[in-house]
């Protein structure tokens, strides 16, 4: 048995596919591709697949990770991406398949790029907003009640950029221990202002801030 880590982009319409539906999509994709995937044992066996971190509905991503196991130790990794892409839609595009270097639990940070459709008008305001020492946002705890947290303390790094539109590049804690959704910060920034924006999760990082592999 061999562990394989799949790296893929989830873009286009797939951003409207929930995590649960993504799990279903991937299982069916693996079956269509005919990979010798490993099934769990026991009373209700199912295809083994585990994801680094669910992606919120509406976000796209350029660096998604899912781990599977192959029953054939000699199965060549090089063929996997092509095989999967042939059986996938362009919205889920695989760019690497390799044996994992680190555990999924070493996921510590995630980097996002938020693009506003503002024609650049937010640039100044966003810069001063981000420079604040305190950005209080409402966060839902695991128990379901709402807590006020200071998101400014959680921001690992950020940069406000502008081409035609304003963009926020931001790195936040991610994973099981601590996870901050950039949407909380954006919502706080926008307040009642209506503006369409898109969040792209561009990287998942380990504790050394290196791409998780």
């Amino acid at each position: 048995m061999k562990n394989i880590r799949l790296f893929y982009k989830k873009t286009g319409n797939a951003k409207y596919v929930s995590h649960l539906d993504t799990v279903r999509f991937m299982s069916r994709l693996l079956r269509r591709a005919g990979l010798p995937v490993w099934y769990t044992e026991g009373f209700n066996p199912h295809l083994y697949i585990t994801f680094a971190l669910p992606l919120s509905l509406g976000m796209k991503s350029e660096y998604e990770i899912a781990d599977i196991r192959l029953t054939d130790d000699n199965y060549p990794c090089e063929c996997i991406c092509e095989l999967l892409n042939q059986n996938s839609t362009p919205d889920y595009c695989f760019f690497s398949a390799a044996e994992p270097e680190k555990k999924l639990t070493e996921l510590t940070f995630a980097r996002f790029v938020v693009s506003f459709q503002d024609e650049g008008s937010f640039y100044g305001a966003l810069e001063s907003f981000m420079a604040q020492k305190e950005i209080l946002v409402e966060k839902r705890t695991k128990k379901g009640d709402i807590k006020l947290i200071n998101a400014a303390e959680d921001i690992i790094d950020y940069e406000v950029k502008k081409d035609q539109n304003t963009q926020l590049h931001i790195t936040l804690p991610a994973g099981n221990n601590k996870n901050v959704n950039p949407d909380l910060i954006i919502k706080k920034f926008l307040g009642k202002t209506e503006c369409f924006y898109e969040i792209n999760r561009v990287l998942l990082l380990d504790s050394d801030k290196k791409p998780l592999k």
Partner: peptide
Amino acid sequence: KPGRYCGGEI
């Protein structure tokens, strides 16, 4: 449920 309106399925 925006996924209802997208199309592009397998």
